[in-house]
Amino acid sequence: MNATLGATRDALRIDSVTKRYTTGDHRVTALDGASLDVREGTFTAIMGPSGSGKSTLLHCAVGLDRPDGGSVVVDGTDLGGLGERELTEFRRERVGFVFQSYNLIDALTAVQNTLLPARLARRRLGREDALKALEEVGLRDRADRRPHQLSGGEQQRVAIARAVLTRPSVICADEPTGALDLARGRQVLDHLRAVVDTHGRTVLVVTHDPTVATRADRVVFMADGRIVDEIDARDGERFDAGSIALRMTGPEES
């Protein structure tokens, strides 16, 4: 038991994070003291109604955005203390990110897109490494295609290959299957699951789909900018699509 405890230190600690947007004279509180700890080597799904702050939380977690209050510690690094350049460098070294769409740069081929963060970081990674990463998502034969020659699912998988290539400790994906059909969405999830199981990375996924959530180790629910509930597979709770969907309606009604 102690051994497992040692192995499962926190990859991500989000503590009472707040984020507000002001548009004109209208103020929106996107995050209202959200706190979340994620253990290393786990797959966490974030669910919640539209506008509850999931994307915002994810952006703050990977340093794409800065919270107004609270702290974010990734892999032992407090993001609050980093300047713009350090933050960027942190991002490309330590986290991978998959957006819902527009993940790839049109001008570059699949391999080039995969290699992009590594190149930006001047890592000694070459085409071979990129091809291996593409192989893992089953796209080796599409390596030299440009994004407009790939399907939406293939594009997402290239983005995953890109996200894992530099071996970041945390990988975040915001509705990676949102635009995909069931089969393609499942493939994408399989790849994310594999990243956790075979490489021991930490994965954080925002999703609206309860069946997606069943692939996770843990599901957290958000409402009004806060974490309001969670189910952990290891706590022995019921962990199927039906019960997740049920738990989700709870906060949504309140």
Binding site: L64, T88, E89, R91, R92, D106, L116, R162
Partner: peptide
């Protein structure tokens, strides 16, 4: 804009 933002998101520093 979008392309440049993506570049920044995957780790391009402003200088790069």
């Amino acid at each position: 804009r979008r392309e440049l933002a993506l570049l920044r998101a995957v780790g391009g520093t402003p200088r790069q």
